[in-house]
Amino acid sequence: MKDQNEVEQASDVTRRNFLKGLMGGAGAAAAVAAFETLADNPAILLAQDAATEPASSGSVLSSAGEGGPVDVLERMRLELQRALQKSSLDRRWVMVIDLRKCVGCHACTISCVAENKLPPGVVYRPVIEEEWGIYPNVGRRFVPRPCMQCENPPCVPVCPVGATYTNEEGIVEMNYERCIGCRYCITACPYGARVADFGFTYNQDMPEADGLILGQAGADDYERVANFEYGKSYEREGRGSPVGNARKCHFCQHRVLEGALPACVTTCIGRATLFGDANDPDSLVAEMIARPNVMRLREELGTEPRVYYLT
């Protein structure tokens, strides 16, 4: 993990420069023009409102900085970088999934798989599809299911070796080297959010025919390159970790702490998945979890998920 100061500085610079890019130098004219056009142009404002979740004031400008309306992705990224300047104990990462906006595209699922180089049988964020009703009154819903990062995670106390635990960021993470692969935590998770890595690769049975086709050796590089979970590298070789371990979503700690949104959030085409620091009252997520239509999965279990759903 990066030195806290370094992170702060880096994100500070990024932030300032980004805003400068938006406002200053060559971009200034365009940005200001945009801003002005927006102010007195109802249709464009509609476009802007549409792009961004309206802040309580009805304008997103206050929370997004002075740069003018931005995609919620940008707003969240800036908020994230703001949160990184606080001590880890002062922030509370939460994810908000707006089921009204989720279109069941599974981009988040695949982005997560690609980001974390998940092997066959390992998935951190499947999207569950439901259909109901009688023709022509039919309904359909899509429910993405990352790890809930429970504040009372049933998966943690069952681990015999402390290989899974809540880290300083409040994220339930894995210590791959410690884990003995007993899979107790898997049975304990009420959300099916943990899976075992059985050691497969997608290209494992592919043919090899040098000079004729690309073949396995030419094709499987991307699967073998390191993944980056927990800021460590794990090249997929032999039976070493994470093969044999339990695995789970970690709210992309390796990205978040470097100032980037989780991979599933950043690629959400429905802008249904939101992420941020709930302790920041100006953050989008803080605003969203105060909505009346908010709920959490299997609330009755008392797990206190950090993943909220809007319905």
Binding site: T166, G170, A188
Partner: peptide, 10 residues
């Protein structure tokens, strides 16, 4: 299982 444990990062 509802006992919370806050732990430092590995």
């Amino acid at each position: 299982s509802q006992l919370v444990k806050l732990r430092a990062q590995s």
